[in-house]
Simulated assay, not measured.
Amino acid sequence: MTDLALPTTTRRPRRSRRRPGRLGSLVAATVLGAAVAACLLAPVLWPLDQSAVDLGSTRLAPSPAHPAGTDDLGRDVALRSLYGLRVSLLVGAVAALVAAVIGGLVGAVAGTLGGWVDRALMRVVDTVAALPHLLLGIFVVAMLRPGIGAVILSVGLTHWLSTARIVRSELLSLRTRPFVDAAISGGASRARVLTRHLLPHVLPRLALATTLMVPHAVWHETALSFLGLGLPPHLASIGNMISDGQRSLLTGAWWASIVPGLLLVAVTLALATLTGRWRERLDPRVRAELHL
């Protein structure tokens, strides 16, 4: 009598539940939170006179009295960097909101109405997208008086295209879903379908696109200020400080432009890391893999 071999079952190795990128997200959140807190508390703890100069303390190297040194007018680089980052983040956030409103309206109209309206609006989007954003922004600022309002309008008018495409594509995808057909069959008007059934699904994507737009807006404002088309020269902004620090590089005062530039890079990378993590969480396929 032969022994029957029992079938052996192989157990699949259990996939680790540890989510990748958690440490990077924690570091990014810490950097961004510390920078935002310092920018908000700087006017209260360390008041700064934007027009004050100290010709007796020009181009001082980093020291306990001036952790990031001084510029060619004797102004503290670390303190002015915080004020400059505060202005740049404010301009970038408001400009991103302006671009989100413009792009959201255009995308909503194109995705809801469809037909020739959709085709006409998308041709406008393609035409504007073919133009270099920075040159278009320079043209907008040149037509207006340089200042915060002109920079915000310039960035908003050049960064709404991706938002319009995202909102349009989401609406076109949602229009074919069964719950939309059920709402229309139940007698819901087009406005009710848009506001009650479609917008709640589009708003998370729109919020993510707006957040992703903030680093681009900050860099756009920095480029305009660097070219002398942004904020007034006496006001502290990252672009103005980098532009003014070029003269100090020739005399060895590298900190005048390197410190604000590194601060800008660190904050924008932290913001991009967090928004990238958010985008992964919104993707159903990535979210399913993270929970395996």
Rank of each mutant, 00 (worst) to 15 (best):
A61I: 02
R277G: 08
L235N: 07
S16N: 14
L269T: 10
A38H: 05
R192L: 06
R11F: 15
L274W: 05
R279N: 15
V265A: 13
H220R: 12
A110G: 03
R279P: 03
R80K: 08
L82A: 10
V141K: 06
F226V: 05
A29D: 01
A5S: 12
L105Q: 09
A68R: 00
L229Q: 03
A182P: 01
A38N: 07
A110S: 15
T158I: 03
R145E: 15
F226Y: 14
G186D: 09
V202T: 00
A288Y: 11
R279C: 08
L227N: 05
L174P: 00
Q50K: 14
L263Q: 00
D244W: 10
M143T: 14
L264Y: 05
R86N: 08
T275A: 15
F179V: 04
R14P: 06
D54L: 10
P43Y: 11
A35F: 10
V117Y: 07
A272K: 01
A191L: 14
R247F: 10
D49L: 06
L161S: 03
S162K: 14
D283P: 11
H66G: 06
P215V: 07
A207C: 11
D126V: 08
G111H: 06
T112G: 08
R19N: 00
A182S: 11
A42K: 04
L23P: 01
V31H: 08
V94S: 10
W255Q: 01
V180W: 05
G228H: 08
V141Y: 07
T158G: 04
G115D: 12
H220Y: 13
D3E: 12
T112N: 14
L121P: 03
G92N: 01
A37F: 07
H220T: 15
L40K: 09
G24H: 08
N240C: 12
S57Y: 08
Q50G: 08
A183V: 03
T273R: 14
G114L: 01
R14Y: 10
A209F: 02
P233A: 13
T222A: 15
H234N: 10
H201A: 11
V167G: 00
P146F: 04
D181T: 13
S237M: 03
E170T: 05
G56V: 06
L73V: 15
V44W: 14
T275R: 07
A34N: 10
G137Y: 00
P204H: 07
G111V: 05
A236T: 03
D71I: 01
A96M: 03
P215M: 12
W116A: 14
V167R: 00
P178E: 15
H197Q: 13
N240W: 02
V94F: 12
L274K: 05
V106R: 02
V267Y: 02
L32S: 06
G156T: 01
L26Y: 11
P64K: 04
R75P: 02
V155D: 00
L48K: 06
A52N: 13
T30L: 15
T210I: 02
S25F: 11
R175L: 12
A236P: 02
S154E: 03
I238M: 06
L105D: 03
I148A: 13
L90R: 10
G261L: 02
A42D: 09
